[in-house]
Computed example of a mutant assay.
Amino acid sequence: MRSTEFAPLFRSTVGFDRLFDMLENSVRPEWPPYNIEKQGENAYRITMAIAGFRPDEVELTQHGAELIVIGRNNPEENATQVLHRGLGVGSFKQAFRLADYVKVENASLENGLLIIDLVRELPEELKPRRIAITSGDHTPRIEAAGQHKQISQDTQKDREAA
């Protein structure tokens, strides 16, 4: 989607310069363009096209399940009149909603592309675990440090009686 051109309105209005400046510099949800890629089972990548921004002009923060990318670029003001502005200049703020247990692993800025690598790390208690199934006798087994111990039925009855 293209941004709205206000040039024809500049010719027919007087005193609305500030309003048009606000409209031209407002937040554009389609800019900067970005891709979201799935790199593996638990790995993702966000690639944003932010040509003209230096690493010190981009701020990347994660607040819980929200990843916020803010770019602050103040273009140089010069005496040149720009007839069409197709290059992204100015500031931007883009927020991404992340799934549970997803965190930023790495971020880099190369050739005008901000690359954000994400990884999902499940806590140990949420990972699937294999449970051994016993057969034959109904004597419970307790596994401790790789050793199998059998509890006698008498001991088990004593515990149930208590």
Results as ranks from 00 to 15, higher is better:
82 V>G: 00
8 P>E: 12
160 E>Y: 06
10 F>T: 15
51 A>M: 08
55 P>W: 00
11 R>D: 15
102 V>K: 00
118 L>G: 02
87 L>S: 10
81 Q>T: 10
159 R>H: 09
10 F>E: 14
77 E>Y: 08
22 M>S: 15
26 S>D: 13
141 R>Q: 08
106 N>P: 02
27 V>E: 12
136 G>S: 05
137 D>W: 07
3 S>A: 13
114 L>G: 02
110 E>F: 05
46 I>F: 04
35 N>S: 10
81 Q>C: 08
40 G>C: 01
70 I>K: 09
117 D>E: 08
86 G>F: 03
75 P>K: 05
120 R>T: 10
91 S>Y: 01
4 T>I: 15
43 A>Q: 13
117 D>Y: 00
152 S>R: 03
120 R>L: 12
97 R>V: 14
5 E>M: 13
160 E>M: 14
105 E>T: 13
114 L>F: 02
110 E>S: 10
24 E>N: 05
59 E>P: 05
29 P>R: 07
126 L>W: 11
20 F>Y: 05
137 D>Y: 07
21 D>V: 14
12 S>E: 13
139 T>D: 07
78 N>V: 03
127 K>P: 12
59 E>S: 06
21 D>A: 14
106 N>A: 08
32 P>V: 04
141 R>Y: 04
4 T>L: 08
15 G>V: 02
43 A>L: 11
33 P>R: 06
88 G>F: 03
37 E>S: 05
9 L>V: 11
46 I>M: 08
58 V>H: 00
43 A>R: 15
101 Y>P: 06
42 N>G: 03
124 E>T: 05
11 R>V: 14
28 R>W: 08
23 L>A: 06
73 N>W: 03
44 Y>D: 05
64 G>N: 15
34 Y>I: 04
42 N>K: 10
21 D>L: 12
45 R>N: 03
13 T>V: 12
135 S>A: 15
13 T>S: 09
161 A>E: 12
145 A>I: 10
58 V>A: 00
137 D>C: 08
109 L>W: 01
161 A>W: 13
39 Q>D: 06
151 I>F: 00
114 L>H: 04
128 P>V: 15
87 L>G: 02
64 G>Y: 13
90 G>Y: 01
100 D>E: 14
57 E>W: 00
52 G>I: 04
14 V>Q: 12
30 E>R: 05
76 E>W: 09
91 S>W: 04
118 L>F: 04
43 A>S: 14
15 G>Q: 04
155 T>F: 04
138 H>K: 15
128 P>A: 15
28 R>N: 13
138 H>E: 14
60 L>H: 00
143 E>T: 11
24 E>V: 11
155 T>A: 02
37 E>R: 06
95 A>I: 10
53 F>W: 04
54 R>H: 10
142 I>H: 04
146 G>W: 07
54 R>W: 01
141 R>P: 02
82 V>K: 09
78 N>M: 01
83 L>S: 06
52 G>R: 00
160 E>L: 13
34 Y>F: 08
57 E>C: 08
108 S>M: 02
31 W>E: 13
20 F>H: 01
90 G>C: 01
